[in-house]
Write a protein that binds this DNA or RNA. Structure first.
Lengths: 142, 142
DNA sequence: CCCCTCTTTGACCTTTATTGACTATCTAAT
DNA sequence: ATTAGATAGTCAATAAAGGTCAAAGAGGGG
């Protein structure tokens, strides 16, 4: 798989975060840019698109001398989950359309809310998408 | 019988998938189009008509620079997946005990059979274990 | 021959990535 | 306090993919 510069920077940062003791790192934007031979705003782009709160990350920064960007991963703490709300909404739709019974939707919602909590957000997002597809498949079987 | 261009592209992709380690490939739409001397949307057509979920495939894509189309085949055969059989058996138990309705167990079995098939085996094993635990929770709610 | 379905093509659209000029905010030295 | 230098942020332009859709073409069965 050929990966873009943004992908490589993302990967690099995620490895650093996972290796860190407290799932938190501090980098210098311009230094990282130099490492990857790109403009500094590329780093900002990567952080802005791949380390969002929706994905379970929290970032802070400081400008000026000795500036830094800090990225913390927090997804294990809160129940914040990627795509969770959307999937629940979709199940509600199916319920409205009588494609699922109340019992079935209850069961699904319970599973979705409790069974996938400690997965990395990217994996969960993928899984939820797939779950949705398979659900569509299922309700169309009749 | 003369095979159409669409047929040949389909064949080509399926060979690649079967040869791949994890039954998953990533291609670039425009590159493949060039290989077959056709317009890129032809590739979209092939994927849309021959790699559907009903046929056991799951696709994802990304636009923009270094974009890709990923096609995964999920394993419709039962024997190969870790913990699959056990989880299905467990659901049957719950059904016997009237802890789940027939509709609910059908839904679950369908999800289990189709939604988690392209995960790495260890992840799936872990997920199934957790799924089982959450199910136990659920049926004990009453 | 006519009709229906599947295929092929291309014009136009949306999303994602990359870059750089300009701006805002710190720190530290004076 | 002022100011110079060092960082990081913003934003818009451009490039690089993939998606959509409708129209035209190609075959096959009646």
């Amino acid at each position: 798989m050929k990966r873009s510069l943004a992908d490589r920077i993302e990967q690099y940062l995620k490895v650093l975060i996972e290796r860190s003791e407290d799932k938190r790192i501090e980098i210098q934007r311009s230094e990282l840019a130099e490492t990857f031979c790109c403009v500094p705003s590329q780093v900002t782009y990567v952080i802005g698109t791949r380390f969002t709160e929706a994905e379970g990350y929290f970032t802070e920064s400081r400008r000026g001398g000795k500036g830094y960007v800090r990225i913390s991963r927090y997804y294990l703490e809160n129940g914040v989950s990627a795509g969770h709300k959307e999937l629940l909404a979709f199940i509600d739709e199916l319920l409205q359309e009588d494609a699922l019974s109340a019992d079935e939707s209850d069961l699904l919602k319970h599973l979705i809310s409790y069974a996938f909590q400690d997965m990395p957000p990217e994996d969960r997002r993928r899984l939820f998408k797939q779950l949705r597809n398979v659900l569509v498949d299922y309700v169309n079987l009749d």
